[in-house]
Amino acid sequence: MSFRSDQSSVVVPFANRRPAPVTPEPIPMRPVLIVLHQETSTPGRIGNALRALGYPLDIRRPRFGDALPETLDEHAGAVIFGGPMSANDPDDYVRREIDWIAVPLREQRPFLGICLGAQMLARQLGAVVAPHPQGRVEVGYYPISPTDAGRALCPNWPARVYHWHGEGFQLPDGAELLAAGDDFPTQAFQFDNAFGLQFHPDVTYAMMHRWTTRGCVRMDSPGAQPRDLHFAQRAVYDAAERAWLKHFIDGWIARVPRTVMLQAAE
């Protein structure tokens, strides 16, 4: 038996061989600071979207004693989420969070406030946060109307978005209105690299189940939608809201200053 091949082998000199491609080490992402207000709260879809982009999450709950950083030098950005409390409450942790928002504003880091977090941002910027004059709430899906600035920032806004709040806020001086509503006119705004959303694109299906079960007292308020309507409208509007959120988060976190990205790569 012969092991000789009929095909002549070609020997490539070492000098002419191409080196194997070197895969560069991925640049480590700085974490995004996540501020939550209840023991069982999660960052929901916003957390999922950030993780999918490679950002670790630094989750803190100041209400239960977690400190907030004096600077965001070690973070890519920050998100303050919602909760059943009010931005007008006298609790120390509420006051501390509102005051702390001066840090991302001063350092030009991407900041996002969701519902209560948006109201805290509005308070930091000098705007009034208050209940609806007729005591109405938004609990369920409600129409939203993006402005020209909102459409330029992020296209394809959903026709309705999910809400869970009894207070609203004025548009802060110097801020750009991105979207408006009926009972609560200020639904989304931008102030430099800081954004406030009165609605809840972060809510997952599991979160909606928890909220509509444990928060049933608020569902008896004027303007609130019944539980079955929450799920019926989710089937209609959720896909558009989910797609919008992904586009929004992609653009929002891209506002990390270039100097921060370069420092992370060192």
Rank of each mutant, 00 (worst) to 15 (best):
R4V: 15
S8D: 15
S8P: 14
V11L: 15
P13W: 14
R17A: 11
R18P: 14
V22C: 08
E25V: 12
I27H: 08
L33W: 05
H37Q: 11
E39P: 09
S41V: 05
N48T: 13
A52F: 11
Y55E: 02
P62N: 11
E70M: 09
D73P: 03
E74C: 03
G83R: 04
G83S: 07
S86Y: 07
D89K: 11
E107N: 04
Q108L: 06
P110V: 04
L112H: 02
G117P: 01
R123T: 00
V129R: 01
A130M: 10
V137Y: 00
P143S: 09
P143G: 02
I144A: 03
T147M: 11
A149R: 10
G150Y: 06
P155I: 08
N156F: 14
N156P: 11
W157G: 07
A159F: 07
Y162N: 09
H163L: 01
H165R: 00
D173E: 12
E176F: 07
A179D: 05
A179S: 08
D182Q: 06
F184K: 05
D192R: 02
D192N: 10
L197C: 05
Y205V: 11
R218D: 00
S221K: 11
A224S: 01
Q225L: 02
P226E: 00
D228Y: 06
L229P: 01
F231R: 05
V236P: 03
V236W: 08
A239V: 07
E241F: 02
E241H: 04
E241R: 03
A243D: 10
H247N: 12
F248Y: 06
G251K: 07
R255E: 04
R255P: 08
R258E: 15
A265M: 15
